[in-house]
């Protein structure tokens, strides 16, 4: 089955006929690409290492990744919660697709936050993991949203999945401050003064690099969302059409480990 060529334009602007790209996403993609190059130049070449009293040296450059990706992941999870609330209100699959897409991209950014934080920590603390309150609560948040994605994979019926994960998407964002606060409080009791925190003093060109990093991360988030949302939307449309091709994987995963479940328990896909 071949689709009619839909792409307009040529060269860079030529769109793949089957893909999730549009004119808008291609233009934003080009802007992101240029900004990434500018960001890398600022972050790795133009900005000077941190030579202040509490010197980070070259390592301050890791912060230009760590902080923006943390901001991007919080943005993503907030969008998931907002889209979940909109789903419960409007009950349209678009909001569900938006919530799901944002959670998945958020998880990618959480992983980057954790890894860059851990790499930075290894240079400062000498170990890959120190019980820094922010890293620890971020790790819990990571598992929480893995659970959200796992719930989505476990429910086959689209309406049931959308409703349940919408509730979870809202509860999850409520959890974030509770977990953050309690872990913070927990560490403040035990913290020794010698442990440096992830709080370098940043100014001048270094501040610019950090700032550009945040802009790039948020633009990248929007660009990824455009594609991921269309992918989720296409999957939902296929599901609705009963074309099981896209569903096959999901169904196989959900059903593979059924074990000794009595037949009467199979609620999925019934309601």
């Amino acid at each position: 089955m071949t689709s009619p060529p839909t792409g307009t334009g040529a060269g860079f602007m030529r769109l793949h006929p089957d893909g999730t790209a549009s004119r808008g996403s291609r233009i934003l993609g080009a802007v992101v690409l240029v900004s990434v190059v500018v960001f890398l130049f600022l972050a790795l070449v133009a900005s000077k290492p941190d030579e202040s009293l509490d010197a980070q040296g070259q390592l301050v450059r890791i912060m230009y990744l760590h902080v923006p990706s943390a901001i991007a992941c919080y943005t993503a999870f907030f969008v998931t919660a907002a889209a979940s609330a909109m789903y419960l209100w409007k009950k349209t699959m678009g909001w569900d697709a938006l919530a799901a897409s944002s959670a998945e991209i958020g998880v990618i950014f959480v992983v980057i936050t954790l890894l860059t934080g851990s790499i930075w920590g290894h240079t400062t603390w000498g170990t890959w993991w120190e019980w820094d309150p922010r890293l620890t609560s971020t790790a819990l948040m990571f598992v929480m949203y893995l659970g959200y994605l796992a719930l989505r994979r476990a429910i086959i019926d689209p309406v049931s999945r959308a409703k349940q994960s919408a509730v979870l998407g809202i509860i999850a964002i409520v959890n974030v401050p509770i977990v953050h606060f309690s872990v913070d409080w927990w560490r403040s009791l035990h913290q020794t003064a010698t442990v440096a925190s992830l709080d370098p003093k940043i100014n001048g060109l270094r501040l610019l690099a950090l700032f550009v990093g945040m802009i790039v991360a948020l633009m990248l988030y929007v660009w990824l969302m455009m594609h991921r949302f269309r992918l989720a939307y296409a999957e939902a449309a296929l599901e609705a059409k009963g074309l099981d091709l896209a569903l096959a994987e999901r169904r196989a995963e959900a059903l593979a480990d059924g074990g000794a479940v009595p037949a009467s328990v199979e609620h999925e896909g019934v309601s």
């Binding site: 819990l140 948040m141 598992v143 929480m144 659970g147 719930l151 959890n175 509770i178 977990v179 309690s182």
Partner: peptide, 9 residues
């Protein structure tokens, strides 16, 4: 996996 991170506090 859903519950344990939530009840960590």
């Amino acid at each position: 996996i859903l519950m344990l991170p939530v009840v960590a506090p």
